[in-house]
Design a protein around this nucleic acid. Structure first.
Lengths: 166, 166
DNA sequence: ACAAATCGCTTGCAAATTGCAAGTAACAGG
DNA sequence: CCTGTTACTTGCAATTTGCAAGCGATTTGT
């Protein structure tokens, strides 16, 4: 079951190990981009809004791949592109991202409307189910819009939750 | 409602903002120590197992305080000590830590037994309720043992979940 | 067919962050 | 008092980050 990395870890504590793998400013943002925005290429990650430098992006993509969170496959449509996709271990980060979203939404000044956050909080299971469904079916349509500026999403009234779950 | 920090943030995305505040190798470990191990003093954090350097620890404690996640109060028993405590914003990180724990428990080789992780996964609500209760009542007894080495906890059969809830 | 643009990187280099070791001021216990 | 402890700070070296530029392999436009 448990995937390993021959421990170069600081301790056996699961939380600590999570942070050994994901504890930096960029890794989880990349996972977010693949998971909820449907991004698949280097270029898309690069222009994701937070402005990651290309050397760091390349480094993080390799580390996430080495950690078994992402896999790559050559693009069928464009020979220059590589598609990145979440592994089962990667999609399993959905609850972590959701809780981070809810936490910041409730306690920081974010670009996401309060009503939106409240809705996510009340429909955790449905949102996670929809996220998982998208992953299984390789559905690349964005689940959430990029909340770029403070105060409103970039697509203005996107489809906050849609129908997810029944 | 939303607490703010006059945005020096990379974007308005809640996930991104969470990572601006917590996205490093140490911040969430400190929160873990306060939340589930009942640690309250500088010394306790320092000898927490992962071996944080004192300058970084001091820096992170100040940043967490500035972010409204921790508060300090002078120790009544010992004039040299300061007690650190989670704010409401800080205790609200419980679900994030729990999901990180479950994720690593399921996908990395950790010091926590599989059965233990499975139990946490099935009793999320009860564990969060107990965590919150401990915080409210300032109960400093450890909820979880430090999973120091790979394979077993340091207290060997501690009290994995106890009675929480009900 | 050919030139220009695009994609996914790599390479240098300066700046910021981290980690390590050694202090230091305030307090506590004997 | 005198010694140990607590919560830090200070220097300094090593690592990591961010910025800008470059580069080979396609793909697109004409």
């Amino acid at each position: 079951m448990a995937n390993k990395a021959t421990s170069d870890h600081r301790s056996g504590c699961p939380v600590s190990i999570s942070l050994d793998v994901l504890g930096d400013r960029w890794s989880l943002l990349i996972v977010r981009d693949v998971m909820v925005r449907g991004y698949r290429t280097f270029r898309q990650f690069q222009s994701a809004g937070e402005g990651i430098a290309t050397n760091i992006l390349a480094d993080r993509l390799h580390k996430l791949e080495a950690a078994g969170i992402l896999t790559t496959e050559p693009s069928a449509e464009d020979g220059r592109s590589t598609y990145y996709r979440l592994t089962p271990k990667g999609i399993a980060l959905a609850p972590v991202l959701l809780e981070l979203l809810i936490w910041a939404g409730n306690h920081e000044s974010t670009g996401a409307p309060n009503a939106f956050i409240a809705q996510m909080e009340q429909n955790r299971a449905a949102i996670l189910a929809e996220t998982y469904r998208r992953w299984e079916q390789r559905d690349p349509t964005p689940l959430l819009p990029p909340f770029t500026a403070h105060g409103k999403s970039s697509h203005e009234e996107h489809s906050p939750k849609g129908k997810a779950k029944r």
